[in-house]
Amino acid sequence: MEMKNRWIALYVENQVGVLAKVSGLFSGKSYNLQSLTVGTTEHEDVSRMTICVTSDDVTFEQIKKQLNCMVEVIKVMDLTNVPLHMKEILFAKVRNVDQEQKEEVFRIAEVFDQGGYVRVTDIGPESVLLECMLTERRNNELIALLRSRFRQIEVVRGGAVAVEAISTTCR
């Protein structure tokens, strides 16, 4: 069966232990969790998680059902085939670069800035820090490119957050 990335938005009670319970479900039942982000919503007592898992159809159905069983879970939304806006924050520090290499980093940043957001937020004699807000896939591509061009890079990723689109079908 086809293994692919699938997305869930999960509304949960904003309480101690709920994150542990949700993440514990994934480890306890050997589900393949790719990323999980969480933050409060417009209602202070409700948090929303954006979860990405790699699974086949059957396992994914099971994951949704298991999440639904939890008392603290208020709502499970399958975002896999829903038009949505999705972004991930990424910091990428490129080290040990000379002037020419810096120029290349800038050019890469410019190209990736399209369809997202990439800024040079900090710079030093030998390093450049990029702050990016791209889709997860675009971030992957950026990291792969930086890795192939530069010897020393440091990557800090935030995990994806997603929201259903209002009018567009963009991702």
């Binding site: 232990g17 514990g24 008392v71």
Partner: peptide, 10 residues
Amino acid sequence: TRSITKYCVT
């Protein structure tokens, strides 16, 4: 006991 209860809380 999180994974062996229907619900648990402090």
